[in-house]
């Protein structure tokens, strides 16, 4: 029997991350998750770390544990993210910094550490999270959209840097889903946003998991540097 595949999911405590962890566990993966707070999820093949993804020391501890425990990492899903909805004129710099630290630096840091582990095993998969706010250039989301534009750029550059190591790097760009991230957004804003999609409905967890699954499939080894938006947004 072949060894189970191992995945690391950031932002694993709730929302998309939590659903993705449960999906991977059900598919036979061994999963490590992290978030700033403890997780209530209990499963024989799940390990949770309390770690802020922009904390380099915490990342080193986490990756060392994966290295010592599994000896390898097959997939990293950089799901952890924070949003900020505010007009640019009113956005304090500490809010901008928080968004950039988690979304950009966190994705960079975890991709770098995962890349080290994966290259030794001859390859792996990295899936990043963008958003339709990037192509839609949504007002009120300057810091968030800019951070995710950086994630898209990172995705494309890392795809090239990691390509010869057998590591693919792709991104999924979800539409709004009913998660904590959009709970603070006024309903009419969400309605307006959805009306600009080719497929006019809110996204569901399964929509996102489907794209992540596609990137993780062994048959997707020739797919890298791509950003797939949901809902027909381009």
């Amino acid at each position: 029997m072949s060894e189970p595949r191992t995945a690391l999911v950031t932002g694993a405590r709730k929302g998309i991350g939590r659903h993705l962890v449960e999906h991977l566990l059900a598919s036979g993966w061994h999963v490590t998750g992290c978030s700033r707070k403890a997780s209530e999820l209990r499963h024989d093949n799940y390990t949770h770390f309390e770690a802020d993804v922009s904390d380099e020391k915490a990342a080193k501890v986490l990756f060392k544990s994966i290295r010592n425990g599994f000896g390898r990492l097959d997939a990293l899903v950089n799901n952890a993210g924070i949003a900020g909805m505010n007009h640019a004129l009113l956005t304090p710099m500490d809010a901008v910094e928080r968004v950039l630290r988690t979304n950009v630096m966190g994705t960079f840091l975890y991709s770098r550490e995962a890349g080290k582990l994966m290259q030794r095993a001859g390859g792996g998969r990295i899936v990043n999270f963008s958003t339709v706010a990037v192509p839609m250039a949504l007002q009120g989301e300057a810091a968030y959209a800019a951070s995710k534009a950086a994630v898209e750029s990172l995705t494309r550059v890392l795809a090239k840097e990691f390509g010869s190591l057998g590591i693919t790097v792709n991104a999924v760009g979800p539409t709004p889903i009913d998660t904590d991230l959009i709970r603070a957004v006024p309903e009419d804003k969400i309605r307006d946003l959805v009306s600009r999609q080719a497929l006019q409905r809110l996204g569901e967890y399964a929509d996102v998991i489907n794209v992540v699954d596609f990137f993780l499939r062994p048959e997707s080894s020739f797919v890298t540097g791509q950003v797939i938006y949901l809902g027909g947004v381009s």
Binding site: K60, K64, R67, G115, K116, Q119, R120, S164, L165
Partner: peptide, 17 residues
């Protein structure tokens, strides 16, 4: 260049360990 990068990344981890 890519060989040197991967070698150094691995070596860095081993030294730190």
């Amino acid at each position: 260049s890519i060989g040197l990068v991967t070698f150094l990344a691995d070596l860095e981890e081993q030294v730190n360990d």
